[in-house]
Simulated scan of single mutants.
Amino acid sequence: MPGPDIHVLSAGSALPGPAVDNATLAQRFGMDTLWQQWIEVFIGTRARHLALDLESGQLTSTLAELVEQAGRQALAAAGLGPGDIDAVVLGTATPDQLMPATVNIVADRLGINDVRTYQLQSGCSGAVQALDVARQILLAGSGRRVLVLGGDVIARFYDVTADLRKLPPAQLVNYVLFGDAAGAAVLSTEPGPGSAVVRALFTRLVGLGRPPGATLEWFGPTDRDSTRPAATEDYKAIEQHVPAMTGEVLEELLTATGWSPGEVDLLLPPQLSGRMTRLITEKLALPRAGEVTVVDEAGNCGNAIVFLQLERALAKLGAGERAVGVSIESSKWIKAGFALQGGGGESR
């Protein structure tokens, strides 16, 4: 027998500090106007939020603080309290510490106790992996409501003393692509006001034999003096593979739901950069789908981006309307996606 419908009741988000535009970033690092124009033309991201004071290099927000804020928003939007939650799942590439797990710190701050907690270590697609774990918990009958969290503080890997004019492209691009943020959603076996039902959801590793497209190191006492860069991004490999992988995810979602391209009302595309998001959206050519994008103003904020999109999508999705979301992770090449239907999905 099929399991119960799984509903996204609400979503919330948290962005640290004011937006940092390209002019501010260029001025801080002593780059000229040509560099600023390069960001706008070839990256296409206008601003990002950073949990970092660019002058001092000091962090202004921890991941736990941002995730807590997003979690509170999602719970309030769903009309729920800490005692209504049966499990908590967090996806992140940048936990505050190896131990204790950030998910447990956040649960404690939210007043959630005596429940299952899971922390998934992953890049951007960790958000969909976390949604998938929550969905499986609910389908197994192990609870009625799960708080799903995602976020990253990538600015902690910035070296504000670096001379960007001397950095290779694989390191330089990180200073302009990424932003810091957190997001949250509540999944339930019961619908609620403004909720959407999950019609399909999957995540799959597809990187067999393919070199990583991105790396993020965690240095310890024995290797903290390594000459390896803390973060790298193979932007050319990402430009080559992500559009095709996005098309594959969309095709699989449409097959799973039985929807045609013309029946999709909202598209939540991968959010690496403003330019790539636009190219991918044009290539998918969904004839009537509105685009839900946040990367132009928030940057690529890793595991938060899907939740920022969900927050906006839930506000737009009418009863019976259909949305598809795609998330691609380049670290070892994971493709993930989900399909939602508004209004509890009364019509298919």
Rank of each mutant, 00 (worst) to 15 (best):
V106S: 00
G143N: 08
S125A: 15
L131I: 10
T94V: 12
G150P: 02
V88A: 10
A170G: 04
Q97E: 12
P100T: 13
D159Y: 06
I154G: 03
P168T: 11
L139G: 03
L110G: 12
V206G: 01
A182Y: 05
P191D: 06
A93H: 04
D163I: 12
G192K: 07
V206T: 07
I154D: 00
D152A: 04
D152W: 01
S195H: 14
P191M: 02
D96Y: 06
Y158A: 00
V186T: 09
T161F: 00
L120E: 00
I137K: 01
V197P: 08
Q121G: 12
P100S: 11
Q119C: 00
Q97V: 00
R199F: 07
D163S: 05
M99P: 00
D152V: 01
G111A: 02
Q119D: 00
V133H: 03
T102V: 10
G194C: 05
G141R: 13
V176H: 02
R199W: 06
L110A: 03
Q97D: 08
R135H: 14
V133Q: 07
S142P: 02
V197A: 15
D180Q: 11
V88M: 07
T161A: 12
G209L: 12
Q136V: 10
R109H: 04
G141M: 14
Y158F: 15
P191T: 14
D159H: 11
V106K: 03
A185T: 13
Q129H: 06
A196V: 11
R204I: 03
R165T: 15
L164K: 06
P191V: 11
G207D: 03
G151M: 02
T161W: 03
G151K: 04
G111P: 12
R116G: 01
Y175V: 10
